[in-house]
Write a protein that binds this DNA or RNA. Structure first.
Lengths: 112, 112
DNA sequence: GCCATTACTTACATTAAGTAAGTCTGTTTA
DNA sequence: TAAACAGACTTACTTAATGTAAGTAATGGC
């Protein structure tokens, strides 16, 4: 064997990214979504319950911040912090890989 | 909102990577692990049960192949296919991000 | 024959995620 | 004034995924 130990920072990063929906939510925010309903619409298979939970986790992890605009009616927006925005190269690499290697049959839901 | 639909290939890629352990297993294989026990050793928090399950999934997804050497005793090795190996840029991007943005306190297990 | 090793499998407990309905604040409609 | 509506969540409950621990099968050494 080559390495005996996994880099703990890498492991920690995957505790975040290796959770269902997390990556897709970050991707949605990177591509311009800001509001709860927008993100929800962009990821149709995900429930509101999961979105709310993940948004809290991502906020706690410093990936995004929740901004309340005390308008009428109140508007809440989510935006990536610098830490979150810096995940763009990761998302781009995944996008590139997916385009090259995921065949049409692997698409999980052909209903739309 | 900007985009209305998530790219289905991207979504499909995250069905794989967005599962616990998957990323760490691929990382282990990229860094030279080949045998069940080696991977298991490199990811101490993961159980054998999960490793066996993930290896099957990754084999089914064409990310790796299982090779049996009918020696005495039999030796089984796992190696990445081209599809699997091409995830290196993704892993590198994550590693780079993790090194820059994960603070020491976020390391999940400081026992070792 | 008995114990060890490797690569799993099985059974059962716990945690995470899915589904659907409900809450809260404020607004618009009747 | 009350009923209905919108947005952003919560809560309760079910199902699926993961964790834990013990067991299996093939081979070799003691």
């Amino acid at each position: 064997m080559v390495d005996l130990k996994m880099c703990p920072k890498f492991e920690s990063a995957f505790e975040l990214l290796g959770k269902r929906w997390t990556g897709l939510i970050i991707h949605a925010l990177l591509s311009g979504c800001r509001r709860f309903c927008d993100i929800s619409e962009m990821i149709p298979h995900m429930s509101d319950r999961m979105l709310a939970e993940r948004l809290k986790e991502l906020e706690a992890a410093g990936i995004l911040k929740r901004i309340v605009y005390p308008e009428t009616p109140v508007r809440i927006e989510y935006e990536l912090t610098e830490k979150g925005h810096e995940l763009k190269p990761v998302m781009d690499a995944i996008q590139k890989w997916a385009e090259q290697w995921i065949s049409p049959e692997e698409k999980q839901d052909a209903s739309t």
